[in-house]
Simulated scan of single mutants.
Amino acid sequence: MLYLTLFICFISSILVTPLVKKLAFKIGATDKPNQRKVHQKIMPRLGGLAIFISFLIGYFLLQPTSPYALAIIIGSFIIIITGVLDDMMELSAKIKLSGQLLAALIVVVYGGVQVQYINLPFNGSLELGVLSIPLTIIWIVGITNAINLIDGLDGLAAGVSSIVLITISGMAIMMNDVFVTSMGFILLGSTLGFLLYNFHPAKIFMGDTGALFLGYMISVLSLLGFKNVTLISLIVPVIILGVPISDTFFAIIRRIVKNQPLSAPDKSHLHHCLLRLGYSHRQTVLIIYGMSAIFGLAAVIFSQVQTMWGSFLVLAILIFAIEIIVEKIGLVDKTYRPLLNMFQALRYK
């Protein structure tokens, strides 16, 4: 039934997306070209509504049970309303953040989705106490915005989200987590159906409706799959979401280095850097898909390593690889090359 529902969500998304495209033009939910945008013509947004409708169809067909389910669905409606309004009239950053915080509060306070403690190595335990609620909310809002930030090229956010969902669902199967597996597969089918229209050259954008919804759902599902676990396992969702998290992290570093406001837009995100290196639109998207798949594979390997030192070794290799890529493509700045400069100095000694 699970795989049949995934297929139904996939077909539903294929059938619903053209209808949403017509609706987007009718209500003015369109994206106009400017100096920061890659596209050259007016494009319909609101594609995330097709993902959401297909997701709801799958949810009511499969009816996965969990004490968290109702809160997640209520929160998703709030996120969708926020995204639709933003796609129509471009809400201020404060209003968008308010919608995200409200959705997160419902899931965390009403739904009880909280990381309350972390089991440390050597039989220790770290009780988060009063920090449990704010830290969980920060995670949900942070990942929601991280997915939104990578939505800069045709098919990029949808494809990366699909790879992340495959990883989360696969690991949920390994842990016999039926609810996370079901929700992940429903969302995966809905996103893949939409991706057929969104891959380059895109016929419709997912808009903030899609990016915020996918980010919200991924943040919650990753929490449910790995909550109240060991310190090592808590790193797994961070690795799975390596592409959006690292892009957001280095965007913050970049703005600090350049003395810019953290909310300042720029054209130095991962996809912008790859485009400047001469890769085509489609090549850039496929390269980032590959990066996301590598992060997903690394997360699976990391979770299966039996020793703490083995886990640290995998993590160290991953951090080293990220830093080299960041310096190579100029994600922080063209002059930011500490490791590469060190290797070059050692080479000529």
Rank of each mutant, 00 (worst) to 15 (best):
Y279D: 11
C273I: 01
Q283W: 08
H272T: 02
S292A: 15
Y289D: 12
V285D: 02
G290E: 14
A293M: 12
G278C: 09
L270G: 01
I287L: 12
T284R: 02
F295V: 06
R276F: 10
R276V: 07
M291V: 13
I294N: 03
H272G: 00
R276I: 06
L286N: 00
L277F: 13
I288Q: 02
C273A: 10
M291L: 15
A299Q: 00
L286V: 09
A298T: 15
L274T: 00
I294W: 07
M291S: 12
S280W: 07
S292E: 15
I294R: 02
Y289H: 11
H269S: 09
L277N: 09
Q283G: 09
V285R: 01
H269A: 06
G278Q: 06
Y279Q: 06
A293K: 04
S292D: 10
F295M: 14
F295G: 01
V285E: 05
G296D: 04
G296A: 09
C273Q: 08
H272N: 06
I287K: 04
H272R: 05
M291N: 10
H281F: 14
L275D: 08
L274E: 01
V285T: 11
L274R: 00
R276G: 08
Y279S: 11
R282A: 13
L275H: 10
H281Y: 14
H271Q: 05
A299I: 01
A299N: 00
G278R: 08
G296M: 11
G290I: 11
G278K: 07
S280I: 08
V285F: 07
M291Q: 13
S280Q: 05
Y279V: 09
M291D: 09
G290V: 13
M291R: 04
L286F: 08
L275S: 07
L297G: 11
I288P: 02
S280F: 10
G278L: 06
I287W: 08
I288V: 12
S292V: 11
G296L: 09
G296S: 09
R282H: 12
H281M: 13
L277R: 14
H272D: 06
S280D: 04
G296R: 07
A299G: 00
A298Q: 07
G290A: 12
G296I: 06
G296V: 05
L275F: 11
H271Y: 03
A298D: 04
I288H: 00
A298H: 03
G278W: 07
V285H: 04
G296T: 08
L297T: 10
L297C: 09
I287G: 04
A299Y: 00
T284V: 08
A293L: 14
T284G: 05
V285W: 01
L270D: 05
A298C: 14
T284D: 05
A293E: 04
I288A: 01
I287N: 03
L275Y: 10
A299L: 01
L270Q: 04
G290C: 12
M291G: 13
R282S: 15
L274I: 05
F295Q: 08
Q283F: 08
H272K: 02
